[in-house]
Every structure is written in C-alpha cells, then in structure tokens.
Design a protein around this nucleic acid. Structure first.
Lengths: 221, 221
DNA sequence: TACAATATAGAACAATCATTCCGAACATGG
DNA sequence: CCATGTTCGGAATGATTGTTCTATATTGTA
C-alpha cells in the first residue's frame, strides 16, 4: 500500500507495535510503552509521531486520556485483530435445519445461545431482526448449489420478487427447496442455481415462500 | 448462562458497560469511568467488584496499569466484539480471482485495502497470516458446488491431505480447479464435490496444490 | 547558501488513575 | 442475638501517564 510506505520508519514501527500490543493485551499501550518499544526515549517525540499518524488516518486519539489510542486502518502484514473494522459481527439466530421433506420450521422462542455470528455485510442491508439461519440437511439442494452442512442466511418473508433465491414449500410435492423465483403470471417458475438443470413450474397457490436467501456459507473440514 | 446470573447487579452492569465502552472506544474504561456509569462513586468499590469479576472468570486485570482490563468471556446480549474469546472479524487479503484457465496468482505485496472481513471461526483455527481470499469467476467450478461470484477462503499451502478440498493447478489441462484431494499412490484422484460427477485422475507431477479451501461464502443479490 | 518546514531530545508540569486504608453497613449462619 | 464474612463509602496517597515548552538537529527548497 502506497500510503503506508509514505510513513517514516518510526511511524511504521509504532503501528506495528500498536498492533502487536493490542492483540496481546487487549488495550492500547502508553506513550512510554511505545517509546520503549521503538527506541524513542522522548515522550514528546512519540506524541509528535502519534499525531502524524492521526493525520495520516491510521490512528484515532482521545486527548488527555491514558491509552486513548486506537488503530483505525489495517496495516500490512499485521494481525489487525483489534483494528476497528468497518464491518460488525451480528448474532443471527440459528433456528434449525432445512430438509427437503419438511417445511422450514421457525421457532418462536429463540435461544440466544443458539446463534451464528455473521458479518453484517452478508445481510445485504436487511434488518437483522428479521434474519435467521438454517443448516442444510440432505443432498437435495444440490441443484441450488448448496450441499449438506451449508449455513443459509435467510430473511423472513412470505413474498418474493423475480430473481430472488427463496426457500419455498411445495405442498404438492411435499418438499422444501431453494430456487430462484420467477412469477410468470399464470404460474411460478422455480429455477435451480445450477444452469445444467431445468426449472420446475408450480401454481402460486402451491408455492409458499418461507424466506429469501441472503447468503450461503460453507465451512470445509 | 448460569454463571452470569450468579453475579450481583453491579457486577453485571460493569460487564455491560465494559462491553459497550470497548466497542465504542476500542480501549477499556478506567475505574472512574466504570464508577460513573454504574453509579458507584467509590473507586474502591469498583475495584472490589472488578476483582470479583476476575475471580468469576469474566475479566483479566493487569495490576497498576491504567485501563489494564479485558473481557475474556462473552456476556449475554452483549456486543462481545472485543471479547478475547468470542468470534472476531479478521481482515483476509483478497488477492484476486480464480479462473479455470489460469493458475491462482498470489501477489506478494498485499494491499490491505483489498481485504474481506471474515469471522475468525470460518478460518478453522488456521493462522490468519496464511489465509487469503479469492473470488470465483466463470462457471467451471460447478462440479465443486461453487459458482460465479463465490468468495473462497484458502489457506496457503502446497501440500494436501486426503479429503481436503484444494485449489490445484493442472498444467496438462491448463486449468485451475477446486476438488477434493486423494493421493492414491500412483496417482492423484480429484473428486468433485458434486456426487453426480465423476473424479479425474492425474499424475502428482502435474498436480500443483495452490491452497486448501477453508470455507466458501456466497452472497445473493 | 539561507530560509522554512519537519523531526528530535530533554525536562518540567499537570492531570489521570490505581491502590490502599479505615470504618460502617449489610448479610448469613449458628 | 452474636459472630463472621461480604459489600460498601470516602478520602488520601503515590505512581502512571499525557501535555507543554524550549532548544537543537535534519531535511527540503528557493
């Protein structure tokens, strides 16, 4: 990154030390800590360079507060664990599994312990309160490019717009499936994500939307 | 959580405030900050309760250090962003795309601006420094249950164990692909994730492992 | 070269901050 | 009820820590 290279060596060392100290201790170092670590034995010089780093956008400071220091921009080859991230982790209730042979069951009483932590980004701006997660069971979602064990993040809804991937309950076939939704007036076309597979057509009365898929996450072993 | 309920109201308030203050400021509050927020106007009482919380395993303290305080156990209904043991958002360098017709290119100088924020959980405990992310281009990964636009989280490695899903470069076929890896001694079997598709067999000399897939994330529109 | 801007060093200062001590209030079990 | 342990309040103490000031180098530039 160009911006990082523009910094003086001392300033880069300060950032590296901040990064390391934060991950190690969970709180920022003092000016004197920084000085000791970067071989600057004048607090004013450390202070000077810290202000430079604030100007450069790498740090934020809170005046007159001990350790009133925070990394706000990730640094190359750093842990960057404690960098204030632009994203937030949200706890999404994990309310069960989705199996082909059953409608999705949405429990009313949500166990807060039973939650998945998902970056807010992956909710596509949807209100977190109407989002839930399901684990996929069985291989029947293969035509949706979804396999056993995948975590599906859904938005609670009973309607859908064309092009949405939705979880639908087909009472005629007695199965739940994940497909792209297209309302063709006289019928609903449900298109598999896998382009090698053909669509299925159902009457809208036999096609109950249970949720709109926001994202799919798969964890390999 | 049973253990949390055993705490006094003051102690629970302290934890909530800690959690809030940490996410807001990026560093822990002082004893006086805590006192002001929880309506305890004696620093010694705050100090007393902080030590109780250390005994209960919710906090860690560093003696005689300002703000030498850290949450080590997630609290119910808290943000828990800065809790050491809870899930953390990590910045994973997003170093390009994976396309069937090309080997994966791993740039040496990583641009930290080009990063994806991923919950640490999804790294399966792998050292964050050897993890990178790629976006999938083209439909050629369909047999790996991966489609256009998917984000693949990989661990940098040139070796693989049986059963790993790996990104491999097949110089004979001139393509990169994601498959399950099985060393059968005389040859390498590369098994698609999609069970309806058959494996391919290659000589190990023509099968260069570029990374092990840790997880796959798909964001629907 | 001369001038200005930037960077460094050291010291003194002032505010922040954790610790400690004492005594009182409160609870709990015998 | 008493005895014991826990929790609390207030204040004093001393160490930690950020800020400021002055003086000196270093660098870049006209």
């Amino acid at each position: 990154m160009k911006e990082f290279e523009k910094l003086s060596e001392r300033q880069r060392n300060i950032l590296y030390f901040m990064d390391q100290y934060m991950t190690e201790h969970g709180f920022p170092p003092t000016i004197r800590d920084i000085g000791a670590a970067t071989k600057i034995d004048s607090t004013s010089v450390v202070n000077y360079n810290l202000n430079k780093l604030v100007e450069a956008g790498f740090l934020e400071r809170v005046a007159s507060k001990s350790r009133g220091l925070r990394l706000v921009k990730p640094i190359p080859n750093g842990r960057n664990v404690m960098v204030r991230s632009s994203d937030t982790l949200l706890r999404v209730p994990h309310i069960g599994t989705i199996i082909a042979g059953q409608p999705v069951s949405i429990d009313v009483d949500i166990d807060p312990d039973n939650a998945v932590e998902v970056p807010q980004t992956w909710l596509n701006g949807v209100d977190p309160n109407e989002v839930y997660a399901l684990t996929v069971h069985g291989d029947s979602m293969i035509d949706a490019m979804i396999q056993e064990g995948d975590l599906v993040i859904l938005r609670k809804t009973t309607t859908a717009r064309n092009g949405d991937m939705v979880a639908v309950w087909l009472d005629e076939r007695n199965e739940t499936t994940l497909k792209y939704f297209y309302d063709e007036g006289s019928r609903i076309r449900l298109q598999p994500a896998n382009p090698t597979m053909g669509p299925i057509f159902v009457d809208y009365r036999h096609c109950q939307v249970q949720g709109k898929v926001l994202s799919v996450m798969r964890r390999l072993k």
